[in-house]
């Protein structure tokens, strides 16, 4: 049984000037102890997917099953149980930490809310986790604004892990960190995964990090999944033209100041192109691409892509 199973999930935001299709029919399965990477351009719906899974944003349609239970419409009181087992590390750490609370309170509160441990036990856990994420114990009595961007990100990671959940959705967990702390944090996340049998959904735009850290990857484009494959297979043979463009855009110390290989911009999710959503920017597009939306087809070995010419 999958730990998490999502079918045809859509999240549309209603705006005064029309609906914005941030997430538009996404399906995925996540096995226990698996790490699933999500990549795709800014604005393609990665954070919305994460927040919708945790019911921080209400889906428009589709279903979310966690450990065999449908959580799409669970009442608020049961939501607390679900959230103890499924946590999120937010992309913007500052916006997600209460500025009036000390780090100690920020980390102790989830334990109190979920009735975990007595006072000394909570204090022990809090001290243990800050040390594990590489902050010193003196950090506990300070406020979020007294930390650097990277230090705040580690507070966010500590808050997500302190409940020892089954699933952690990490939204750009290491992008604010310098490389040596990135390495420490990724090593920490993988140790925690082994210790707690965790599963991760790992949202990142850093492809080298995704390649190192994930078992499988979903590539999203404008609210949809365009390719899904085991990590190694995706790097050895990317099939969707968008995936290839993404990989080509990685800065390479050997090439100085080259132009971006992918032309144009992500179209507005309020104005989704007909046919294949990628066709206005695609080097392979033909007439059929402008009319017919390709489906996510299996190509064998767990690899699928949504492209008429893949």
């Amino acid at each position: 049984m999958s730990l998490l199973s999502i079918a045809d999930l859509s999240t549309h935001f209603r705006l005064p000037n029309g609906a914005l299709r941030a997430l538009d029919g996404v399906s995925l399965d996540l096995q226990a102890e698996e790490t699933l990477g999500i990549v795709g351009e800014s604005g393609c719906g990665k954070s919305t997917l994460g927040k919708t899974i945790l019911r921080l944003v209400q889906p428009t349609s589709g279903s979310i099953r966690f450990a065999g239970e449908d959580v799409t419409t669970v009442p608020t009181r049961k939501l607390a149980q679900f959230r103890r087992r499924a946590q999120m590390v937010f992309q913007d750490p500052f916006a997600s930490l209460n500025p009036r609370h000390t780090i100690r309170k920020i980390l102790t509160d989830p334990l109190v809310v979920h009735g975990i441990g007595d006072k000394p036990e909570r204090a022990r856990r809090v001290e243990d986790i800050v040390q594990r994420v590489g902050l010193d114990a003196g950090a506990l009595d300070r406020y979020p604004h007294e930390f650097s961007g990277g230090q705040r990100q580690r507070v966010g990671i500590a808050r997500a892990l302190i409940l020892e959940p089954d699933l952690v959705i990490c939204d750009e967990p290491v992008s604010a960190l310098d490389l040596s702390i990135q390495a420490q944090t990724l090593n920490l996340l993988s140790r925690m995964k082994a210790d707690l049998n965790l599963s991760y959904i790992f949202i990142s735009h850093d492809l080298s990090v995704v390649r190192y850290f994930t078992d499988r990857v979903l590539v999203m484009y404008l609210g949809r999944v365009v390719e899904s494959a085991p990590t190694r297979a995706l790097w050895s043979a990317p099939r969707h033209p968008y995936t290839r463009a993404l990989m080509d855009a990685v800065p390479d110390p050997a090439r100085r100041r080259h132009a971006a290989p992918i032309k144009g911009d992500l179209p507005s999710p309020q104005d989704v192109p007909t046919g294949c959503r990628f066709h206005p920017r695609c080097p392979l597009a033909t007439e059929i691409c402008t009319r017919v939306e390709p489906t996510l087809d299996r190509l064998g070995d767990g690899h699928s892509a949504a492209c008429h010419h893949a």
């Binding site: 790490t35 590489g134 902050l135 010193d136 003196g138 950090a139 310098d178 490389l179 040596s180 990135q182 390495a183 420490q184 990724l186 090593n187 993988s190 140790r191 492809l207 080298s208 990090v209 390649r211 190192y212 850290f213 990590t231 190694r232 790097w235 990685v250």
Partner: peptide, 27 residues
């Protein structure tokens, strides 16, 4: 710092082992 960076050109994966880190912390 340079040895800590996961390099895109090598096919190193978390299942192969941890990344190089600089031991200790700035604190």
């Amino acid at each position: 710092l340079l040895t800590a960076s996961p390099r895109l050109d090598d096919n190193f994966h978390y299942s192969d082992g941890p990344l190089n880190e600089i031991p200790g912390s700035i604190s």
